[in-house]
Simulated assay, not measured.
Amino acid sequence: MADVRSETESNSPLDVAPRTAAAYLDPHYWNERFAAEEHYEWFKDYSHFQHLLRPFLSPSHSVLEIGCGNSRLCEELRRDGVADITCVDISPVAVERMQNRLRDIGLEGIKVVQADMLDMPFGGESFDVVIEKGTMDVLFVDSGDPWKPRPATVDKVMKMLQGVHKVLKPEGTFISISFGQPHFRRPLFEGQGFTWSVDWKTFGEGFHYFFYTLKKGRRMSDNKECGSERPSMPSISLLHEELEDENYIFRTTICEELET
């Protein structure tokens, strides 16, 4: 998946937004969207979280981006010195268009592969860094009560996390950029069998996005334990462009579920 659009794009975020949040789970929706849409960045573009991501990157690292969509994150990482990048997306349309775009701009060193994030075709300990930006959040659009998600949702999320844990090298890092607050994500990230630490920071001028870092081989949490009480929803003070952005629609759906 991939809120900043180029000036040459004709579609607005609202033009391609689905009628219901559940449509985000439909691969056909993504094929139709990517066929019509040139570029869309979910959860801000690279410039907003570059300072958080750079400490985990090295020119020698192999990086996997899950759910690349039509994001330009891989291009930014390549220009930032990362030489070995693999992008995956479930949509064959997104993959083909990404391959064509990278070829047209002459950017080498990026492999784009069609793959399901619940069944990734890579061997164990293949990547130093795995990044997802908004992709895992899609699994929660019909999860029900966020304090007790539907078992089917939990099963899918755990399957994704198990796949990420498997392909990470020892001491590798999983970066998850999400709307999901720590009191919802930590019980999943800290599931049985995962040998990684869980830490997070926030970024964003309006509402906050969460930047999670899970370091394999370090089973501990660096942040304080979350309380058992349900926290109140943070107030949303958005910039004008965020009010017109599809991220706002997505966040509103999550907030409505949380308040019920």
Rank of each mutant, 00 (worst) to 15 (best):
S197M: 02
F174G: 04
S62K: 11
D142K: 09
V157G: 02
A35F: 09
S197V: 08
E242I: 01
S47D: 14
I66H: 02
F127A: 06
M158R: 14
P55L: 09
I66N: 01
I177E: 05
M1V: 07
R186F: 12
F56E: 13
I177S: 08
M233C: 13
G123V: 07
H165F: 11
S12D: 07
D142E: 15
D80L: 06
E108M: 07
S221A: 12
Q181I: 10
E259C: 13
E9T: 05
S47A: 15
F184A: 11
A94F: 03
V88P: 02
I66E: 02
L52W: 07
K156N: 14
S58L: 09
M160V: 14
K169R: 14
L168R: 06
S143E: 11
H39W: 05
I66M: 05
N31Q: 09
K148Y: 14
E246R: 12
L243G: 13
G67R: 02
V88T: 13
V138F: 01
Y40Q: 09
I131V: 11
S143G: 11
G191K: 06
L14C: 07
P146D: 09
N31I: 04
V141E: 01
F179Y: 14
K169G: 11
Q181L: 13
W196E: 06
Q50S: 15
E229F: 04
I105P: 01
F127G: 01
S12E: 06
P146R: 10
Y212T: 02
A2L: 04
S235T: 10
R219E: 10
A152E: 15
